[in-house]
Design a protein around this nucleic acid. Sequence first.
RNA 1: CGGGGUGUAGCGCAGCCCGGUUAGCGCACCUGGUUUGGGACCAGGGGGUCGCAGGUUCGAAUCCUGCCACCCCGACCA
Length: 490
Amino acid sequence: MSKAIPKRSQDYSLWYNELVKRADLAENSAVRGCMVIKPYGFAIWEKMQAVLDGMFKETGHSNAYFPLFIPKSYLSKEADHVEGFAKECAVVTHYRLKNSEDNKGVVVDPEAKLEEELIVRPTSETVIWSTYKNWIQSYRDLPLLVNQWANVVRWEMRTRVFLRTAEFLWQEGHTAHTTQGEAIAETKQMLEVYANFAENYMAMPVVKGVKTESERFAGAVDTYCIEALMQDGKALQAGTSHFLGQNFAKAFDVKFAAQNGELEYVWGTSWGVSTRLMGALIMAHSDDQGLVLPPMLAPIQVVIVPIFKGEEQLKEIVDHVQPYIDELKKAGISVKLDDRDTLRPGFKFAEWELKGVPVRLAFGPRDLQNKTVEVARRDTSEKQVVDVDKVVEHIKALLEDIQQSIYKKALQFREENTRKAESYEEFKKLIEEGGFVLAHWDGTSETEDKIKNETKATIRCIPLNAEKEEGKCIYTGNPSSCRVLFAKAY
RNA sequence: CGGGGUGUAGCGCAGCCCGGUUAGCGCACCUGGUUUGGGACCAGGGGGUCGCAGGUUCGAAUCCUGCCACCCCGACCA
């Protein structure tokens, strides 16, 4: 096995897969389409969870938990919703196994057939709304602001670690409101929460927008989304927030008594982000040396590699470094001292780079003598020798700088790869080159479909900040009032 | 589900076409020693139902049939 990971520019897919594996994030499971998230990968996910969960609480939401199984009849209550998910559901039909006739294993006991099949949730709108029916009677019960951290199953044809797996972890918020305006405000608020998380924690710039009809969530009136651009020029949907109107309220008969005594259907929203964000995080910043993690989400922010000969020198160095470790920890910085005596420093450097640790300190006899420490930053690979007494302040500033600087780098990349197309010919050329393409579109699903079939590009969203601009649809020439965002997507 | 590819030690592969000792190699692992400021070196060692099930044969990793899994390209999708 070669030690270097495959080059990003040569085979992006292979680079991604190898990176996931070698940085110890996850692996494909023997179970079809499922992944095993390994401890290091899960630590990053837990960081994400903690930040997001805090943001949800701050905006007034509470966590709850609903069943994994959904009776088939629930799923069929909202027509668009069934249609959207029917093709990719895992179904439980039996509740018992028995020894096979030849005694060589177990078989499904045909006697134990369920009267009504259970669907493993692909999303929880249906179970949750059937529960909300009992929770909501009066306007005093509203708004109902609930989030759930859970796993869901979607039987995808083709899977890829983190980006599309048969089972994935996510959070799904489900809220109910008295008015349309309040529900729309909630939908937009959660979109802002996601955008804030993506940009300020993941250091990943996103475009906020609305989905077109054909890309809309099954059962929603409007789907808002954040779209990010990966380093290979493909777009990744990083989060969605849906305004459900009264669709689910009507399907599940969820009404409330308004102040005026009238019975009204509630207004709903749902919103979610998943372990797909892990894929986004990996692809947004990493390089040929491995993962590059934003300090805000790195499970280990600073790693210390002591350079020593023999046990005594190690002890001497560790003793000397310990006060600085304590001080860093006190400042809320997570530090790992890599005191393994079986590996050489060069190996450790490479390993921690692979794992994306933002800052590495190397401390050896030379530093002991000079009262210095070598500080290396992961994002630029720059190294500098710092006066050891100033190291804590230096690192604090450095972590902030790395956070900012990888964001800026990603933003610059996105800006360089967001271009305008004025004609269909130009559009096809730009799409082929990769990146976001802003172009006029006549607003019809037919046109969108044709463009998709001919170029593989989809409308990622109609950006919320799109300027009014009269133009002609690149495909049909029909009038258009703003540009929409096209790209090939994951 | 269509087209292509792969399955041999934890990982990456050779061997298969043309059947024949004890199935190899690199990395990783274990032991001992020397090393340690960018992926160390020497010596020794352990580890295999050759994806699974049948078949052909005196003999199968190798040939035949069926199945399964994974990867890539499509269709589907967060």
